[in-house]
Nucleic acid binder design. Sequence first.
DNA 1: TTACCTGCAAACTGTTTGCCGCTGT
DNA 2: ACAGCGGCAAACAGTTTGCAGGTAA
Lengths: 141, 141
Amino acid sequence: MDLVTALHAQGKRLTLQRSLVLEAIRRSRHHTTAEEIARRIREQHPQIDPSTVYRNLEALEELGLVTHTHLNDRITRWHRADVERHGHLVCRACGSEQEVPMASLEPLAARLRRDQGFEPDLAHSAIVGICRTCRSVPSGR
Amino acid sequence: MDLVTALHAQGKRLTLQRSLVLEAIRRSRHHTTAEEIARRIREQHPQIDPSTVYRNLEALEELGLVTHTHLNDRITRWHRADVERHGHLVCRACGSEQEVPMASLEPLAARLRRDQGFEPDLAHSAIVGICRTCRSVPSGR
DNA sequence: TTACCTGCAAACTGTTTGCCGCTGT
DNA sequence: ACAGCGGCAAACAGTTTGCAGGTAA
């Protein structure tokens, strides 16, 4: 999806700050935080305020160009919307995270649709638990 | 599990504030927030500080008497640990929440254990999506 | 020209922490 | 008597908001 087209469709404007935010998200390989995006942009453009980053993340999400997910902390993670969707497994013991293909989650989605009439977004929040490594630790902490 | 027994096992003490927090959680039918617990306690004991409530929630969780879950906001929800575990479905459109039996989630849990070696806690965070009612709204907002 | 957008500063929410005197055991 | 605990006030992190001037279209 093209930025300018999407912007015009919603009467929004193209600004330097807006394209820098989008570019920063596109460049980061994994999920980033608003703070990280702001930090990187401010290396080159120190006058750009973090609040502008937050406002533009919201705008870009309304445009359907980016989305956010939640791992196991209170920080919002951002990524481009046109990337392959996947679930997240986060270990509460060691904090490690791994991705899981949507196909693995689809049977549950189908079940929730059928039994509860609920259309789940299983990519939106991480599944918390204990990872393989931490499970195998004897009496581990 | 008995409060006093659990306390002694960890060298913790029985205080009025501690039992009030536990009692408040036991009395609330659904998931409550720390603020709500503090508010109720302070109706009768205005001198008890919210920070004490937070500290005791943590202590009671260490004792295994209470646990917390996360719905679709950044607020921690507390409930007694000896209640039947269940998952949560939260609608991102209308905010409604419904419970889902662990049995419905168990096939996914089994799959994650088998394929990823990951032991998920599917009761810990809500599954976000669109509920039956909001799905059926024509062009809905 | 007129919405929309920005930087700045300040507010906000939920939660945590340091201090120090008090209290359960 | 002494570790754990409580009240108080302040700090904290992540995020949001009000304002007034600036800029894309």
